[in-house]
Structures are given as C-alpha cells and as structure tokens.
Amino acid sequence: MTRFNSQWMNAWQDTVNADPTLKIIGRYFTADFLVGFDDQEYVVSVRNGVIQRVTDSLSIETPWSFALRAPTESWEKFTQKLPPPMFNDLWAMAHPLHGRLRMDGDVKVLWQNVRALTWMLERMREVADQVVVEERATRV
C-alpha cells in the first residue's frame, strides 16, 4: 500500500471516527481543511468532530478553510510510532527554523479547533502502525 493514498486516508478517517475522545473534544469542530503530501492533496470535511468525507477530487472551486502541506517524507516521520525530534507534532514541523510544514488559509479556524485537529492528526500514527503490520504480513 502506498503511503497517503486514498485507501490510507479512508483508513485514517475510520480510525478518527471510531475514537470516542474526539466526539467530546471535537464536538464544535466543523470545517473543511486541506492536507497535502507533496503534490497529493486531500480535503477533509469535518462536521461536529466527525470526518464526513475525504476527497482528492479537487478543483479551484473546492472550498477549504486552512491547509497543512508538507513533504511526504515529513509526514512519514510524523506518523512514526515514536517520531524523531521536530516531527513529533505540527508545531515542531512548522517551526520557522525547520520549515517543513506550511500552514495556509484561515489559520484562525485551525487555532479555534487546535485540540481536536491535533488529536485527529495523531491518529495517523495508528494507521501507520496498521500499514506496517499489513506490509510485514504480505512479505511472509
């Protein structure tokens, strides 16, 4: 499975939506945001803390409030079970001295929902663990 493809993003959506904590901390999080892995971009539609849809069918008319864009290599490090320094959270990845993650758009919406958003993104590590297990199983 290629990392960060549509199947991976759907697995992330399922993992996020199954998390009971998010139903509490994300209950007011309603926004569309973009997540970019190099040239591959997805719009994530969140309603009351539930990811309703993840799409890679984007056009100039696809609305989103804010964007998180980073090289695939950075996202791969971020999604490790124990990420290396400067890849352990969004703020480290976006640090001006590091500069791997770009935040664009209406970052006010990002800051208003920062706890739920970071919780959602941390669930990517659970999906990454599943992918590693599946890859090992297919090699045997």
Score class of each variant (00 low, 15 high):
T118K: 14
F37R: 04
L82C: 09
L117K: 00
L117S: 07
I25L: 01
E76T: 07
D19I: 03
P84Q: 04
M124S: 02
H95N: 13
T30A: 01
S45F: 13
A18Y: 00
R136Q: 11
V132I: 10
A94L: 04
D129T: 09
N88H: 12
K77D: 07
L58I: 10
S65W: 09
T72C: 10
E126P: 04
I51W: 08
Y42A: 06
V16G: 03
F33R: 06
D104F: 09
F29R: 05
M9A: 10
R69C: 10
A11R: 13
E126S: 04
A94P: 01
A92H: 10
A94W: 05
P83C: 06
K108I: 12
W64A: 05
A70P: 02
E73N: 11
V133C: 07
V35K: 08
D38C: 05
R139M: 11
Y28C: 08
L117A: 10
E122L: 12
R3E: 15
N17C: 02
E41N: 12
V133H: 01
G105V: 09
S74Q: 05
T15Q: 15
V109F: 01
P96K: 10
W119L: 08
M103D: 06
E126A: 13
D39W: 07
A137S: 11
T15F: 10
A18I: 01
V35I: 15
I24F: 12
S59C: 00
T72M: 14
K23R: 15
V35N: 09
L22A: 05
V44P: 01
V54R: 07
P83L: 05
Y28F: 14
K108H: 11
N5R: 07
N48H: 08
K23T: 15
P71T: 09
K108Y: 07
S6Q: 14
V107N: 00
W64S: 06
F66P: 04
L34V: 04
V35W: 08
K23V: 13
A70T: 02
V35H: 01
H98K: 03
E122F: 12
M120K: 04
D14P: 02
A18H: 05
L22R: 11
F66H: 00
V133T: 03
R100E: 15
R53A: 02
Q112T: 11
R27I: 13
F87E: 08
E135R: 14
Q7V: 14
E61I: 13
Q130H: 07
